[in-house]
């Protein structure tokens, strides 16, 4: 009898501590997608119910080291402050979308610097390169998704 009570208490404690641990590390989701007429996911990282996972494109989610999620969250802090570029309907751009509880933000970044010339050989540059913070975050998520 005593053994049963002790077991039950132990189980309750265990479940409570796991729930507490999961609650300590809030769930979040960061997606990198192209944004040029349609959304196509490139790579994502998320923490769901305390478990860190990554995926490349729309492949199946794969478990990742908890440190990867910590790192992505840290990098997202700087990326959240980066400027977003104006959205052009079909121009080469990508979007980083961040969601943590009620907090969410989206950053549009150019995919490439494109030079174009008119018939009089007058050339213009459009697009560009993403800011360092966004680039670091995107690279990290992509590399982590690749490793898996």
């Amino acid at each position: 009898m005593n053994f049963k009570i002790v077991s039950l208490l132990a189980l309750t404690l265990c479940l409570c501590s796991r729930a507490f641990a999961a609650g300590q590390k809030s769930d979040f989701d960061i997606k990198v997608a192209t944004r040029a007429g349609g959304d196509e996911e490139l790579a994502s990282i998320r923490r769901l119910n305390g478990t860190c996972s990554v995926r490349s494109g729309l492949e199946t989610w794969k478990k990742a080291d908890a440190k990867a999620c910590e790192r992505a969250l840290a990098l997202s802090g700087a990326a959240s402050k980066a400027a977003t570029v104006p959205m052009m309907p079909h121009a080469p751009q990508m979007e980083v979308a961040f969601k943590l509880g009620t907090e969410s933000w989206k950053k549009l970044a150019p995919l490439a610097l494109v030079k174009s010339c008119d018939r009089n050989d007058v050339c213009t540059e459009s697009g560009g390169t993403p800011t360092k913070a966004v680039k670091e975050l995107v690279d990290f998520i992509s590399e982590t998704a690749l490793k898996k």
Binding site: A36, P86, M88, P89, H90, A91, P92, L111, A112, V114, T124, E125, S126, G127, G128
Partner: peptide, 11 residues
């Protein structure tokens, strides 16, 4: 080769 045609503003 990224796209065949699109509207954009210059930098």
């Amino acid at each position: 080769t990224y796209a065949n045609g699109y509207f954009d503003l210059s930098a």
